[in-house]
Design a binder for these strands. Structure first.
Lengths: 118, 118
DNA sequence: GTAAACAGTGGAGTACTGTCCAAGGTCAAG
DNA sequence: CTTGACCTTGGACAGTACTCCACTGTTTAC
């Protein structure tokens, strides 16, 4: 598919996709006329990128994940290891969120401020 | 306390704290010699800033939270409302993390890639 | 009283993540 | 065969969050 359609389906602008291509976050072939041509899998991939990004991963990290996925040996082991690693990161982040949540929760109703020091 | 001690205790650099002061993220008085003087509460506050930041909040958002905390009427209600609002944001983010986690978890062991489209 | 460690200011520079042109090439419809 | 929608490149600009520097003043330790 061409860049406009990918942009529409992924909810990004064409400029953003060109930027992502420049930093290696997506890759595509070129048509004879020079237009970019992306595979349909680019849509869910870019959606994953969005998600990972809001979870605190930098584009460089996400690009590296994509790279590892492409270069992984075809045994499922490499992929599983990669996923498990990401799951660990997610668990750590969730624990951190839970801590902050508990901290806030404990103060609800007590009027105890978060010491908003000046 | 002076800026160096605050920096050491909060795990930041002096430059970062000066930057934070410039954007209103921390405020302090000045000593007679012009040195900044921060209250001890600045330490936990900056630690909170760090946490909130890793959770995806911009410094501007965090600064506004601090502002709201300072300006809240002294009833506990305003603080509780603010905390509850933050808790909602945290819950939404945790749900998002849980979704991504489940997605990854389902692929561990299956060898099914995340469609790392190029 | 001097050297080291700490503090101040202003401003330049950096990395990341886009966003917006301008000038131009391609293609489908009427 | 022109119009409009789409595509190309290169480069300038923007916002966020620092980071570093030069130059200067202050405090502390010896």
């Amino acid at each position: 598919m061409r860049i406009g359609e990918l942009a529409a389906q992924a909810g990004l602008t064409r400029d953003t996709i060109r930027f992502y291509e420049k930093i290696g976050l997506v890759t595509g072939r070129r048509l004879a006329n020079g237009y970019r041509d992306f595979p349909p899998e680019a849509v869910p991939w870019l959606q994953y990128v969005r998600t990972a990004q809001t979870l605190g991963f930098s584009l460089a990290e996400i690009a590296q994940t994509g790279e590892e996925l492409r270069n992984a040996p075809d045994t499922a082991e490499a992929l599983s290891a990669l996923f498990e690693e990401k799951i660990k990161v997610i668990d750590a982040r969730m624990a951190q969120l839970a801590t902050l949540r508990a901290e806030l929760d404990a103060r609800v109703g007590t009027g105890c401020p978060l010491r908003a020091a000046g």
